[in-house]
Design a protein around this nucleic acid. Structure first.
Lengths: 226, 226
DNA sequence: CGGGGGGTTGATAATGATCAACCTTCGTGG
DNA sequence: CCACGAAGGTTGATCATTATCAACCCCCCG
C-alpha cells in the first residue's frame, strides 16, 4: 500500500506559504534529523488508530486528515497545505487517518525525538502545545460551521479559508475534488457544485477550470459567512 | 453581570467523577493558590475573545462553552461536568464563551501562574499539552458527529457520552435543557425531544422527569451510533 | 391555586440529499 | 495527432430529513 519513495536532503521551500505562517517544529530543533517521503495521489500516509511514530510537514502537494463511520461516511477534519504540520499527537496513536490529495512530498521527524527534546527544552514543549492549541482553535471554528451554518455559508467560509491559506497571484488553485470539499463541510459534492455555480452566476467568483478559482468579491463572501 | 460569590478553601470532591478521570492541573501544582467562585444559572463565566486570565475547574454544577454567529445561532463546543477543566488557553484570549448551566462553583488558578510553572517544570508543560490534546480529540470526534451523523445517531452518541461521564447509580441526571442539547448536536430542541420520545417508546430509555433518564439498552444505542 | 419555563406533539415548509443524465477535461494509446 | 475512455463536474427532478411554526401540556415553584 505504501509505495513511498525516499528523497532525503531536499530543502523545504514551499513557494505558496509565507515564511511567517509556517509553524515549523523542525526549524526549531536544529539537531533533529528530518527525512522526506513522497506519496502518490490518494495514497494513505497513516491510518486511524495507528501508532504515531512520526510528525509530518507538507513540503509540496496537499494532505487530508479524516475520520470514517462504519458505513463509509467520511468527515475531513483538515486540509494540510505546503508548510503545514500534521500528525502531531500527544498520545500514542493518530486520531485521524491521513491521505495525499495529490502527489505529495512530506518531511518527517520521529515523534520520540520531539518528545525527548521537549523534556529538556521548554521552548520545544511550548511549541508543541501551541501547535496543538492552533489545531484545536481550527476545530472549534469548524464545529460552529458544521453545526450551525447553511450550505452557502459553509462554501463561502471554505473559499475564504483557502484564499487566506493558498492564494497566490489572486488565484485559488484547489488541490481537492468536490467530494473532498463536501466531506470537509458536511455536504454532498452536488451541493458544493451548485453553490459554486451560484456564486459564479452572481459574479462573486470566476473559474478557469473547475479547481482554478478567482474571488471577485471577497466582501460578499465575508458578509454571507455570518 | 458577574454576581459571583467567593467561597475559598472548599475541598474539591466531585462525587460523580472517578479520581482516575480527573485531569487536574491544580493537584499537580501544590504551590499554586486556587480560589473558588460561584455562578448562578445562565451566568456568564467568561466571554468570547476575552483575555484568558484564569483556568477553571468545575467543582459542582455544569458549564457550557460555545460560539455564536452574528444572528444568534449557537454552537456549544463542550459541556463541562464536575472535575472537568475548562478555559485553558495557549494563546492570550478565550476562543469560546462559558456560562453556568445551573448554579455552579468553580476553582480557578491564574493562567500566568500555570505558564510560569510550565517554564520550570516539564511535567506541568506536558500536562498542559495533554489537556489541550484531549480537548482536540473531543473536538475531532464531535466534528464527525456534526458533519456526518443523523439526528438519531447524534442523540444516541450524546446519551452514551453523558452516560460515560456522569452516570451514577444507573441514572443520568442531565443538567442541561433540550435547547442546549440541540445546540451541542447541531439540531433544534424539537428534534431532540422527538428523538428522545422515540427512544422512550422503543423501550431504549426510561424517564423520571424530562432530565432524569435511565438507559435500558446501551447496546442498541451503540449500534445506532454507527 | 396560578403562572411560567421547559417540554411534547402535530402540521407544514424548506434545505440539502439522492438518483440520474449528461457534459468536460485530460491523459493515454492507437 | 487524434480518438477514446475514465474521472471529475454540472445540472435537473424528486425525495427525505430536519427546521419552523404553532398549540398544548406538565410540572414545579411561588
Amino acid at each position: 500500500m505504501l509505495t513511498a519513495a525516499l528523497n532525503v536532503n531536499q530543502p523545504l521551500r514551499p513557494k505558496t506559504t509565507p515564511a511567517s505562517r509556517v509553524s515549523d517544529p523542525f526549524a526549531a530543533m536544529a539537531g533533529l534529523v528530518a527525512s522526506e517521503f513522497s506519496y502518490h495521489k490518494d495514497e494513505e500516509i497513516f491510518g486511524d488508530d495507528e501508532p504515531a511514530e512520526y510528525v509530518y510537514q507538507v513540503v509540496s502537494g496537499s494532505v487530508r486528515t479524516y475520520k470514517l463511520l462504519s458505513d463509509g461516511r467520511r468527515q475531513i477534519g483538515s486540509f494540510h497545505l505546503p508548510g503545514d504540520v500534521f500528525g502531531l499527537e500527544s498520545g500514542a496513536t493518530h486520531r485521524l487517518a491521513a491521505e495525499a490529495i495529490v502527489d505529495t512530498t512530506v518531511r518527517l521527524v520521529k515523534r520520540a525525538a520531539l518528545e525527548k527534546a521537549a523534556t529538556t527544552d521548554v521552548q520545544v514543549a511550548r511549541k508543541l502545545w501551541d501547535m496543538t492549541a492552533a489545531e484545536l482553535n481550527h476545530a472549534e471554528n469548524h464545529m460552529l460551521l458544521l453545526g450551525r451554518k447553511t450550505a452557502m455559508e459553509k462554501v463561502a467560509a471554505f473559499l475564504l479559508e483557502m484564499d487566506r491559506r493558498l492564494a497566490s497571484a489572486g488565484m485559488l488553485a484547489l488541490p481537492m475534488c468536490r467530494r473532498d470539499i463536501g466531506d470537509y463541510l458536511g455536504l454532498t459534492l452536488e451541493t458544493i457544485s451548485r453553490a459554486l455555480s451560484q456564486l459564479h452566476s452572481g459574479g462573486i467568483l470566476g473559474f478557469s477550470g473547475a479547481r482554478q478559482i478567482v474571488l471577485r468579491n471577497r466582501q460578499h463572501l465575508r458578509d454571507m459567512n455570518a
